[in-house]
């Protein structure tokens, strides 16, 4: 049942992840900064730093460290955090769902917001609605997350007192971060949907559908939208990466403990195993999201055979 193209992609999957892990391993080990010195702080005694380095295995040649990292990886052992001594996987499992939740909500917000706006704009190009929507989308792409997040907090949490400022908890905690993260994406999606829809609405099959006497609603949703969505789904897959990187800033602003803020903290502490584990799961998620996007085209457009 699995077509050769899909099989090829599945084969590429471990190779891509392996390359990402390797590059990150060397980059994080080669940048200056010594976790042992950072951990021991100012009061460290001469022998202490050396002793800790050897206890952590950081005094071994980089090649040897890399080999044991790979061996661990094959056994699904990602190691223990240098700082907390806990298995890094525990922390990842603790944080990853939070980031996924945030990314999914952001994506749902982006889709729910962008696609109707894109369709409305396309139905009446250059109308007031279209102009307003496109102006907002330029704004949406241009506002940096850290600024948008703070503006949303000031308006919706402090002034209107509708939502909590930050932290993690119920659904009310996820609204502002998801909007912050999703707005940029929704701006891109809205523009994409608009241009694809304008093209689709002008096509022969839409004229045929209309000539058949179908209602305008059916024409738009069943005929035009379905064809317009294929490129939109591509963008959605690619934007998953942007969501995961955007999450780093968004999570910090909203004290939302996900994988992005964990990675930032681990990089600052040079907690090598933790950084590597974070990058590993982010890379896997990214590759999976793209694979998923590819499969979705096939569902949308049976002419595509993967």
């Amino acid at each position: 049942m699995i077509s050769p193209a899909i099989r090829k992609r599945l084969l590429m999957f471990p190779i891509t992840v392996f390359f990402v892990c390797t590059v990150v391993f060397f980059v994080i080990h080669l940048v200056p900064g010594d976790p042992a010195a950072l951990m021991l702080g100012e009061s460290a005694e001469p022998g202490d730093i050396e002793a800790l380095r050897s206890q952590l295995g950081l005094d071994r040649p980089l090649g040897a460290q890399y080999t044991s990292y790979l061996v661990g990886l094959l056994r699904l052992d990602l190691g223990r955090s240098i700082w907390t001594k806990e298995p890094v996987l525990d922390r990842i499992l603790d944080r990853y769902p939070a980031t996924m939740e945030l990314a999914l909500f952001a994506m749902v917000f982006a889709v729910v917001f962008a696609i109707p706006i894109g369709i409305l704009s396309a139905m009446k190009p250059n109308s007031l609605i279209d102009r307003l929507a496109m102006f907002l989308s330029v704004l949406g792409v241009s506002i940096p997350n850290f600024f948008l997040g703070l503006v949303l907090i000031v308006v919706f949490s402090v002034e209107l007192d509708l939502l909590p400022v930050s932290g993690r908890g119920g659904i009310e905690h996820i609204i502002l971060p998801a909007v912050t993260l999703g707005l940029g994406m929704s701006a891109i999606l809205a523009r994409m949907t608009r241009s694809q829809m304008i093209e689709a609405l002008a096509s022969d099959y839409v004229r045929t559908a209309r000539a058949k006497g179908l209602s305008e609603f059916t024409v738009i949703t069943k005929h035009a939208l379905r064809n317009a969505l294929t490129p939109v789904v591509t963008i959605l897959g690619l934007q998953m990466g942007a969501l995961l990187t955007g999450a780093i800033i968004t999570e910090t602003i909203f004290s939302y403990e996900g994988i992005g803020s964990l990675m930032i903290q681990s990089i600052a502490r040079r907690d090598y195993p933790q950084v590597q584990a974070c990058v590993l799961v982010i890379a896997i998620s990214y590759v999976l999201a793209n694979l998923f996007a590819d499969l979705t085209y096939r569902a949308l457009d049976p002419r595509i055979r993967l």
Binding site: L150, V154, S157, V158, S166
Partner: peptide, 18 residues
């Protein structure tokens, strides 16, 4: 004790009273 890493967010939490 809530962990709020961003300085602006910390002050907004304070301003809101949370």
């Amino acid at each position: 004790c809530r962990i709020v890493p961003d300085t602006s967010t910390r002050l907004l939490e304070l301003r809101k009273g949370s």
